[in-house]
Amino acid sequence: MRKITTLALAAVTALVFAASAGATVVNLDGHANASTDGSTAKTLSLGAGTYEVMFTQDQYMAFSRWNSNMSCAGDGTHCSQGWENSAVFTAGAQTFYFGDSDGNGGYGPNADGSYYDSAARSFAHAGIYSQLFTLGTAGNVSFYIFDDNLSDNRGGISLSVTKVDVPEPAGLPFLLAGIGAIGLLAYKRRKSASL
């Protein structure tokens, strides 16, 4: 019975919180898709709904605003020049500065404004970032890297954009009642089995 209860709870949780569609990957090249005004952005046409943006490893892991690293600590952090994970995207009237130092050019991933010595080390840090946005109606969302001097850039950024189901507030009492009923049933069966 415990196994059935666990499976039922897992199924309910999966139905409520699972993504309704697979992720779309947006690859942003450090040269072709970098600007300060979004003029080089890649655009996705998305339907109404709530979406989650995260860094992913696809064509790119991270980008650098320079052609070399400089003044890194022995552990590969605190570089004055190096690798980062940051991007900007616009959804409707909202602009999101996403990732290291909120993706707002010239600042690296650490609070002190420093960078990493490799794309892999920067990407390993990038898992802390996740951004939700909601489109009330279908529309375009534009993604780009914020930078102004592109000649020495290296790498790029890969983002996953996933539509997620958010439970309706009116349905939450029913969800909680269902979970409670499953728990009560498991309790009663466990109690009768022990007698």
Rank of each mutant, 00 (worst) to 15 (best):
G113R: 02
G113E: 06
G113W: 06
G113Q: 06
G113C: 11
Y115N: 03
Y115L: 03
Y115H: 10
Y115G: 01
Y115D: 02
Y115K: 05
Y116L: 12
D117M: 14
D117T: 13
S118D: 09
S118L: 09
S118M: 08
A119D: 07
A119Y: 08
A119M: 05
A119K: 01
A119G: 02
A119N: 03
A119L: 05
A119S: 13
A119Q: 10
A120E: 12
R121Y: 09
R121D: 13
S122P: 07
S122C: 10
S122I: 03
S122G: 12
F123C: 02
A124T: 13
A124P: 09
A124L: 13
A124M: 13
H125Y: 15
H125W: 15
A126N: 07
A126F: 07
A126C: 12
A126W: 03
G127K: 11
G127H: 12
G127P: 08
I128W: 00
I128R: 12
I128V: 12
Y129D: 08
Y129R: 04
Y129Q: 08
S130C: 00
S130H: 07
S130E: 00
Q131I: 02
Q131S: 08
Q131T: 03
Q131L: 00
L132D: 10
L132F: 14
L132Y: 14
L132C: 04
F133S: 01
F133N: 00
F133V: 02
F133W: 00
T134C: 09
T134H: 10
T134S: 13
T134K: 10
T134P: 01
L135D: 08
L135G: 06
L135R: 07
G136S: 15
G136R: 12
G136M: 13
G136I: 13
G136Q: 15
T137D: 12
T137F: 04
A138L: 11
A138G: 15
A138Y: 12
G139L: 08
G139D: 07
G139K: 09
G139Y: 06
N140C: 03
V141I: 04
S142Y: 02
S142Q: 05
S142G: 05
S142F: 02
F143N: 01
F143I: 04
F143T: 02
F143G: 02
F143C: 03
Y144E: 11
Y144I: 10
I145G: 04
F146E: 14
F146G: 06
F146M: 11
D147H: 14
D147Y: 11
D148M: 08
L150R: 10
L150A: 06
S151H: 05
D152A: 14
D152T: 15
D152K: 13
N153L: 10
N153Q: 09
N153P: 08
R154L: 14
R154N: 12
R154C: 04
G155K: 04
G155V: 03
G155N: 07
G156P: 01
G156T: 01
G156W: 04
I157Y: 04
I157P: 01
I157R: 03
S158R: 09
S158Q: 10
L159C: 04
L159N: 02
L159S: 02
L159F: 02
S160G: 15
S160M: 14
S160V: 13
V161N: 00
V161G: 00
V161P: 00
V161Y: 00
V161R: 00
V161L: 00
V161F: 01
T162D: 03
T162A: 08
T162M: 04
T162R: 11
T162W: 06
K163A: 12
K163E: 13
K163D: 07
V164D: 07
V164I: 15
V164S: 08
V164C: 10
